[in-house]
Design a protein around this nucleic acid. Structure first.
Lengths: 344, 344
DNA sequence: TTGTAGGCGTTATCAC
DNA sequence: GTGATAACGCCTACAA
């Protein structure tokens, strides 16, 4: 199948030995070869449409020019954005980005598939759990890794994430300025960094505003999904606790709140204000348009790609760059799901 | 970097020659080898965590167990659904699915990148233009190809798509039953099969309902995007033509109509009904919830993956299975963007 | 049934 | 500056 032009054929066409052709074709070694010869080889390669065989090259160099990206779920629209950003910056440098979708990078299955079966040069991990371990092959080796979106306590790798603490500050202050005092929080799963950090931030910002956070007003979920948001909102309402606003740990769970509130005849924002987190695609078009924290996912992905590139080059040059951890600033999008509390 | 367990090491561990180990490890040739020996080898491989080196194997067998998928844009949520379906059926058989995002599979650049630079065993094309040619390498060779979502006039390959004609029939009949007679169509680009087929279907179903399709009520666009929908809707309104319903060729363009209509104080569905096509994620949550044609994207992707697998095995066995072309039935989702025309 | 050896297309290390 | 040669890890005739 698919047999393509080989280096030998280019060399024959140019009338040189194939090792010379190899040197001429490789920009890094081109200077070694006579300029005239190089030009001849390049012309021959162009004429025949030569492309180096990626497998042969990879076998020899032990590099595939392919980066793996582990995401939990492409159907949540924030991950395609992350992907697009990372893909853009990696493609610039000739790298491919290979997606693997699944729950947790730390599981042996996902690790082996993406790391071993595809021999990627590096791993961008967007699906880490808070105690995830680095994917490694059977001989305990691992690949250059960049965490994105989610961080961990356990993996010592550069990371690019959102400043969740600041983000939650934006919504809490917004609600406080509107006059809310009884504010509930639908917290994300506590095995994912975003869930933990946003929850802690919620408590911290409430306290710094002089407000209470009674335990019945904080409900944890098992996943950042609509259904989990629904369940949490039901629990919140069934507890009988009084509140005039809900801070959702992400947009999808806030959407789940929309559903339950509507079912029970509670109007947003008239009776209860609701905020999300992420500013996912089209969340400005749901009804009512959701007030949320806008996270620069594309930029996060792009930056993760760039960090990966520096990791790969510093690995080659042996320079021991320290892992950096970056948090990008989010901003508040005030829309129609928040309003002053109803006077009661 | 990343040096893993090799076949020789497994063979040494098992006390056999490495060619024997190779045969024992390969299910196809395992029967040749002594059952006892095979068991020993398998145990050794298990113990050491042996995984065949994908590049070495691929170089030798000329197969990478990787399928490329060309999509126009992962940010349109229908494509992640297609991807998820295809990935699921391919992963079952040990194949990887590699995404390449971009506009048209027929362009040399995208062809070369996905087909040559990654040496995929096959190509699932979801971004074909109507006159696209097969991606091929410099020696005019191509790979097994399956078209999905969009079809072409020019590529002789199996395809899996939606029955667009039937889908448009569903919305037109729905609007006719509501009492509409003056119905406009925002047509997709005419260089994409879906744009063409839906447009033709619109005309055909209107006529078979005894209704007219004056040219000013059909506006073509240059892409299936929100902005194009906006522009088309503006042209429609500025033409001064009278109509009480708009059939959008997809959901995103119908969303663009929502925007323009709202800006001009025209209420949906009271003044004008609007329908979409795709039933993309969260389109049931925009305001008003959109009546649309629901397309089984996940199933389409899954089927495309299966067709690819049969293509690959029939290629091996030399059986000349004819290209099949499948169209999956969509169904109508009636929501809140359609209503009887206002009595005037 | 098992061992031998050649080759897939590169790159890299030798001589010359 | 260039040519010969080995090696990357695996598969597979062919020979034993």
């Amino acid at each position: 199948m698919l047999s393509s032009v080989t280096l030998r054929e280019v060399a024959d066409e140019a009338g040189v030995h194939y090792s010379t052709a190899s040197r001429a074709l490789n920009p890094a070694t081109r200077s070694i070869v006579n300029a005239k010869t190089a030009k001849k080889v390049l012309a021959a390669a162009e004429r025949l449409g030569y492309r180096p065989h990626p497998l042969a090259r990879g076998l020899r160099t032990n590099r595939t020019l392919t980066i793996g990206m582990a995401v939990p779920d492409l159907l949540n629209p924030v991950f395609p954005q992350l992907y697009a950003g990372a893909e853009a910056s990696l493609r610039d440098q000739g790298y491919w980005l290979l997606v693997g979708a699944g729950d947790d990078c730390g599981t042996p299955k996902s690790a082996s598939r993406i790391l071993i079966d595809q021999h990627v040069d590096g791993l961008i991990v967007a699906n880490a759990h808070i105690h995830s371990t680095l994917p490694q092959n059977p001989t305990n080796q691992t690949a250059p890794t960049v965490l994105v979106n989610r961080t961990t306590d356990t993996i010592d790798a550069p990371s690019v994430a959102c400043d969740d603490h600041a983000g939650i500050g934006l919504v809490v202050r917004h609600l406080v300025e509107l006059g809310h005092t009884d504010i509930a929080h639908i917290a994300g799963p506590q095995f994912i960094s975003n869930g933990v950090i946003r929850r802690q931030a919620f408590v911290a910002w409430m306290h710094s505003s002089g407000l209470e956070t009674p335990p019945e007003l904080i409900v944890e979920t098992d996943g950042f999904h609509i259904d989990e948001g629904r369940r949490a909102c039901e629990r919140l309402l069934d507890s009988g606790a009084r509140f005039t606003a809900i801070v959702g740990a992400n947009d999808l769970m806030a959407l789940g709140c929309y559903d339950v509130l509507a079912e029970r005849g509670i109007r947003v924002p008239h009776d209860v204000s609701v905020t999300g987190f992420d500013d996912m695609a089209y969340i400005d078009r749901v009804h009512p348009a959701m007030t949320t924290v806008s996270v620069p996912f594309y930029e996060m992905g792009a930056l993760a790609g760039e960090v990966m590139l520096t990791l790969l080059t510093s690995e080659d040059s042996g320079a021991g760059t320290l892992p950096t951890s970056t948090r990008l600033r989010p901003h508040l999008e005030v829309r129609d799901s928040t309003a002053p509390p109803a006077v009661s």
